[in-house]
Nucleic acid binder design. Sequence first.
RNA 1: GGAGCAGGCCGGGCGGUCGCGGCGCGUUUCGCGUCGAGGAAAGUCCGGGCUCCGCAGGGCAGGGUGCCGGGUAAUCCCCGGCGGGGGCGACCCCAGGGAGAGUGCCACAGAAACAUACCGCCUGACGGCUACAUCCGUCGGGUAAGGGUGAAACGGCGGGGCAAGAGCCCGCCGGCGGCCUGGUAACAGGUCGGCCAGGCAAACCCCACCCGGAGCAAGGCCAUAUAGGGGGAGAUGAGGCGGCCCGCUGAUCCCCGGGUAGGCCGCUUGAGGUCCCGGGUAACCGGUGAUCCUAGAGAGAUGACAGCCGCGCAAGGGUGCCGUGAGGUACCCCGGCGCACAGAACCCGGCUUACAGGCCUGCUCCCCUG
RNA 2: GGCCCCAUCGUCUAGGGGACCAGGACGCGGCCCUCUCAAGGCCGAAACGGGGGUUCGAAUCCCCCUGGGGCCA
Length: 120
Amino acid sequence: MPSIRLGRLSQEEDFRRVYREGSRRTTALLVLHARPNGTESVRVGLVVGRRLGGAVARNRVRRRLREAIRAERGRIRSGADLVVVPRRAAAAASYAALRGAVCVALDQAGMGGAAEERGR
RNA sequence: GGAGCAGGCCGGGCGGUCGCGGCGCGUUUCGCGUCGAGGAAAGUCCGGGCUCCGCAGGGCAGGGUGCCGGGUAAUCCCCGGCGGGGGCGACCCCAGGGAGAGUGCCACAGAAACAUACCGCCUGACGGCUACAUCCGUCGGGUAAGGGUGAAACGGCGGGGCAAGAGCCCGCCGGCGGCCUGGUAACAGGUCGGCCAGGCAAACCCCACCCGGAGCAAGGCCAUAUAGGGGGAGAUGAGGCGGCCCGCUGAUCCCCGGGUAGGCCGCUUGAGGUCCCGGGUAACCGGUGAUCCUAGAGAGAUGACAGCCGCGCAAGGGUGCCGUGAGGUACCCCGGCGCACAGAACCCGGCUUACAGGCCUGCUCCCCUG
RNA sequence: GGCCCCAUCGUCUAGGGGACCAGGACGCGGCCCUCUCAAGGCCGAAACGGGGGUUCGAAUCCCCCUGGGGCCA
């Protein structure tokens, strides 16, 4: 449900477009959807479902992910829409583990996004 | 010293670096300053404020509450008292009106579940034995003491009385009714009468009191909109006002097709907290008193990194003491792990539920010492 | 954030205070039938979400938790 600065995704339509047209990378802790948006800005949406736990647990996961993405923002190509969906295991994961998962997913998706753009 | 009861409180602290949200300021791609979750923010179980439904009117239906008195904006909450139950006690628990209005239910067992007689007891007539005694059988009457059933059987114990019995009579207890006394009242105490009537209303119900409905996604404003498109109903009353009716209102409403699904307000200072003074047993109320007031997001702000201190946990080492010993205990040290329950979304008052650890106050019981 | 529903064998359900109380269907296991399988027949295992209360007695009535589901501009 929540999102991040650095450009946030908010509209339901935007989320659906990323799901439909973007690439998808899955790790043990999270799923990353990515799609070039044709602009200079980067927008990120976080989807933290109720299966992650109560409000405190969901807030903790969302804040850690937001911090991890901020720290690793150098790895993101400009002009991308990202949707990060933490999986159930993320609720028990440490910040370091989450940051590692973000790092891996961003590296793979960054290449995928570029390849997809070339294909058009 | 040990066990326990009641009430209240805290719920990690300190300062860095990088980030986030609001507000303010500034030489507005940025910088500076400042503030930034809870006692339950939770469950949404009650009650209010606020907003809209024209007014929030009457009746029915429906729902809620239910000893008495008080507090409050209000309550199913709180305080005080009464009654009942539990505990040696401090104290705790109780939806606790009416079954002497009606309906219904009370399985199984039992004769009978609300008015009855199975066994039994007593007795009359007749018959059977030899005789009016005893015994047995049949028919009738009396009885509710005893047996047995059950969760529950026209009150319990003792005595008198009687053919046997029975509140039939007497004493005590319990219940009911009248009167008197105390209390605002619930009720308590006394006295007289008399023995009359099972339980369940968290079964229907009766009585008393309360409740109009929705909910900030309420509601209001602005902007945008192949467009002001097509069809139908309507002052002989459309439609609306809670589920219905009365009553009120009075010109728009319904369907098809199409568009917008963005911004601003509501949005945080209020039945506000703390202290003091006064009133009250208390809840609470009053005060020209003093002081503190600062989260306000909108896919939804508190996180990351490292340090010091505090607390807890289970292990390791050293020293002292006790013990033959396994071990126990006190202090110190090194490194480690963890720090509960849990996250505001219009706001308040309650209730309920979750919660590592710790602190304070008052009280009870037991043991020891004086 | 607010407002409403629901809960019974593995699944779908019946039962709304005692007795036919925990019944039925599908599924599961065993046996019979058949050369074998299916179908059919017989038998069996299997549940009232949790905790309190009312009652002599709760799946059923009341309260509190827990877990699902739905609606809103």
